[in-house]
Structure formats: C-alpha cells, structure tokens
C-alpha cells in the first residue's frame, strides 16, 4: 500500500511511485558545456555514459540529460548538434534500463530523444511551445512544466508582486494547455523554477510556500543544486555549495517528486538517513 500523499507518475515505460519525504534523486549529465555549476565538461559519449552510470550507482533514479545550458554564457548549440549529442546517450542509457529525462525547451530535441526512449521532457521554458506537450502525449511521456517568465538562455531578476501566486497561475494555465493537447494530467510534473527569472528573495518565498504546490496533487521537481539564493545566505560560490544544496533538499523533501542535483551520492545519503530518522520518530 502506498504511503499517504504518494503521487503515481507514469512516464513512458517507467512508473514512479513518489512518496512524500523520499524524493527520487535526478542526476545531471550535460552533453554540451555551459552550466554555471559544471566543473568538468564531458566531451565524449563514453565519458557522458560513464558519468551517468556513476550517478546511477550513487543512487540517481533518473538521469536528466542537458543539451543546451540554460544560462547565458554563450550562444545556443545548434539543434542538430544537440540532437546528435543527446540521442546516442539516451539510447545507451535506455539499453541499461535507466529512466532518462531531457532538459530542453526545443521540440526538435524532444522529438528525437523521445523516439530514442526518453521518458520525460524537462521543459525549462514553461511550455513555451505546445508541440512539446503533444510529443509527450504521443509518447506517453511525462512533462515537467517549469515556472519562468523569461525565454531560454535569458537571465533576469524580475519583480513579482506575489511570486507564489504567479507560479500558481502559470501551473494552472500551462497544465490546462498541456491537457488540452492530449497529455494526461497524471503525467504532468511541476517545477516552481528555483532561480529561474527570480530574485533570491523570491526563491526563499517560493520555498516557504511548497505546501501550496504540493496541494495540486502532482509530482514536484525541484532543481535544488547549488542555487544562488543559498549562496547569498552563506557566501559560498556555486561549485562549493553542497551544504546549501542539502538544506534546499531538506526544505522540499516532503514534496512527492524529484530533486535535481549534481551531488547525487551526498543527496542520496542525506535522504536515506533522513528517512531512517523519520522511521525512528
């Protein structure tokens, strides 16, 4: 029997039973350089696959493959290069029965990687292109709807009168749009978009409001890794924010869903120990 509050998420040939307090750890492998917190660029397919399998060994329950960093350090990687880099990695991971998510706002990348066996599209544009929803529906895949109010590869500290209300509005609107395109609501995953177009104080506000998002009854994805807001609190630089990442995970652990992190082993160890502590109390 599932624990109370468990969310069932079908995702192509995978199925996640997402219990509160036990988030699935999502590991990150980027096929192209640019992420603000990547310390090593994995240039070859072999290196990317080795990294992904290492993360699985450390406890990742799904691998999020990034094909074009969302930060604005450089121009976008051409779409054909994104596809060419991602598809072989997806195929190799699928052959190992590893669930694969694709971090992309591009329908062309989503189409190719879903055909290669990806089970989830992590649409970091907030569903700017409805073709993404149609593709997920056609492949019975899960779709992550992320809250942002700027376009891909654009950074901003926008002013929100009420950031939580804005997130709720976007979740309501974009979920309805995805369903209208044929996607079953149960396949929608919501990401409040920590650090996306938000001032660090807005990130704190949204983290304090997680129960509001949980009440929607859908899976929640939190990009918890090395976030700016936490660096503002402690002064730590992006590549040295493991305690900050773990604090973010602590704050969202009650949400049934996923935590997307670079430090998979440490986060898995934290979650397992916290679950064990829950059982003792």
């Amino acid at each position: 029997m599932s624990a109370p509050g468990t969310v069932e998420l079908p995702a192509a040939r995978h199925h996640f039973s997402l219990a509160p307090g036990r988030p699935v750890v999502m590991g990150i492998v980027n096929t192209n350089p640019g992420s603000f917190s990547d310390t090593v660029h994995l240039a070859s397919l072999d290196a990317q696959l080795e990294r992904a399998m290492t993360l699985v060994g450390e406890g990742a329950g799904i691998i999020d493959v990034g094909t074009d960093s969302g930060v604005a350090y450089g121009p976008s990687v051409p779409l054909d290069e994104q596809v060419a880099a991602a598809v072989p990695l997806v195929e190799a991971l699928v052959a190992e029965d590893v669930p694969v998510s694709i971090d992309t706002p591009y329908a062309e990348v989503a189409r190719a990687t879903l055909e290669a066996g990806a089970c989830m599209i992590n649409d970091v544009s907030g569903l700017a292109d409805l073709e993404i929803a149609r593709l997920c529906a056609a492949h019975d895949a899960a779709l992550v709807i992320l809250h942002t109010r700027v376009g891909h590869k654009q950074e901003a500290f926008l002013h929100f009168d009420d950031v939580v209300a804005d997130i709720e509005d976007l979740f309501e609107e974009r979920t309805a749009m995805a369903v209208a395109e044929g996607l079953d609501r149960s396949r929608v995953v919501l990401d409040p978009g920590l650090g996306y177009s938000k001032h660090p104080a807005d990130d704190v506000a949204l983290l304090r409001a997680y129960d509001t998002f949980i009440a929607r009854g859908l899976a929640i994805l939190t990009g918890a890794s090395r976030k700016l807001y936490s660096g503002v609190i402690t002064g730590a630089p992006p590549t040295d924010r493991l305690p900050e990442t773990l604090a973010t995970v602590a704050a969202v652990r009650r949400a049934p869903g996923f935590v997307r992190v670079h430090d998979v082993g440490a986060v898995r160890a934290y979650v397992d120990a916290a679950v064990a502590a829950d059982a003792r109390t």
Binding site: G126, E131, K153, Q154, L158
Partner: peptide, 15 residues
C-alpha cells in the same frame, strides 16, 4: 552579470 536584457513578459506561446 551576463549582459542579457530581461524580458518582463511570459514566453510567447507558439503552437
């Protein structure tokens, strides 16, 4: 700072 201008509007919905 990346020198990229903010777009104070939601992403355009294209379909």
């Amino acid at each position: 700072p990346k020198g990229v201008e903010a777009i104070p509007n939601p992403p355009t919905i294209v379909s």
